[in-house]
Computed example of a mutant assay.
Amino acid sequence: MNDEFFATINGASLKLQVLGPEDAPTMIVHHGAPGLGSRSEPVRSFGPFADEYRVVTFDARGSGESASDGPFTHEQWVADIDGIRELLGLESIVMAGGSYGGFLSLEYTLAHPDRVSALVLRDTAANTDYDYTAVERARTSDRVTIDPWAIERIGTGEFADNAEFERYWRAILPLYDHNYDPAAVERKARATSYHFATHNFAFGVNMPEFDLSGRLPEILCPTLVVVGRHDWRTPVLASQAIADGIPNAELVVFEHSGHSPQLEEPELFQSTVRGFLKRAGVGGAA
């Protein structure tokens, strides 16, 4: 099954895409980069799991094709995840998310521990302790010269309009992949749907208060934490801190990846996640 549709969740029209058999264990996958991201990355990353799992992806409010109705708080985005779960009649889910989607996956698991059978986190963090490393890596990159204007805006919410937001995104995109491909960077920039107000709220309002490090021991479900060795935005140390804080969490470092091991080492990523889910007792459909 590959079903795309709009659904009204907590008063906002959200675009959903559901893949895989209806009677299989279900994972809800949250994209990163609010205001830039969309379900397209989770579909590419987790679509292959639709042979054994029901994979639910969506554009979060304020991103992709979904409505730009606020608020863009973590509380609202967590409520939207649970609204999707309720809409689909799911008792429990595998919660998965990367980058900013990992922040929200952690938030959802803490808010609804009885609903999460397993947690998959990719290239994310539990606080902002390591944000300074992103600025340093951008400033010292030997790949491209990053516009100082863009460096000053990393991790901030200071964009006046979508044109300015796109200028920023094009400037920092070369940092994300382990293997730099200018043509791929251009394709990504052209394919992006820009929502500057969503990003401004996420990084200007939400992130200064974001710190879940003290609550990580509350997460008792099986947890897999994966990260690219060369991730410029959320370094290995941030993932290590999550794995150290969550009881019995597993950490896997992908040696030939940047911020997106799910796309840069897809076969290893898929086998790693499948193995984890089976060990966690969330085996796929026969």
Rank of each mutant, 00 (worst) to 15 (best):
R170L: 04
G228S: 12
E86L: 08
S239D: 03
V43W: 03
Y194T: 00
F276P: 04
F196Y: 14
P235R: 07
S257I: 04
L251H: 01
P235V: 12
I154C: 10
L237G: 15
M1V: 08
L36R: 00
A243Q: 10
E158N: 15
L216I: 09
D244A: 12
Q17M: 15
H31E: 07
D177E: 15
H199R: 03
D244S: 10
D3Y: 13
R233F: 05
F5W: 13
G228C: 11
V227F: 03
H31G: 01
S141F: 08
V236W: 01
H74F: 13
I93T: 03
Q262H: 11
A118Y: 03
G214S: 12
V227K: 02
N248G: 13
G204I: 06
Y130A: 14
G275V: 03
E209Q: 12
A60G: 03
R85Y: 04
A138H: 01
A171C: 11
P266N: 11
R187Y: 08
A60D: 04
E166H: 02
G11S: 07
L110S: 06
L173W: 11
V116N: 06
P208I: 07
L104K: 03
D147L: 09
Q240S: 01
A171I: 06
D142P: 07
G89S: 00
W77H: 06
A24P: 08
A238C: 11
A163Q: 11
D69T: 15
F165L: 12
D82R: 05
E164P: 03
S257G: 09
F159T: 11
A7L: 12
E158M: 14
Q262Y: 02
V116M: 12
P42I: 12
E209G: 11
G101C: 10
P148W: 08
L121M: 11
G97N: 01
T198E: 11
Y168K: 10
H30G: 12
A138C: 07
H230P: 04
Q76Y: 02
D82M: 02
V227D: 05
V252A: 14
F269T: 06
T223I: 04
N10C: 07
A7I: 10
H230A: 10
A118I: 05
L263A: 13
P208Q: 06
G62Q: 01
V185H: 10
V144E: 07
V43R: 09
V120Y: 09
A12G: 04
S99K: 03
G284K: 06
A241T: 04
A33E: 03
V226W: 00
V226H: 01
A134D: 14
F201K: 13
T73V: 01
D123G: 13
V273A: 07
R233P: 00
A138Y: 00
Y130Q: 14
A238P: 02
R170T: 05
I219C: 06
E250M: 10
A243L: 14
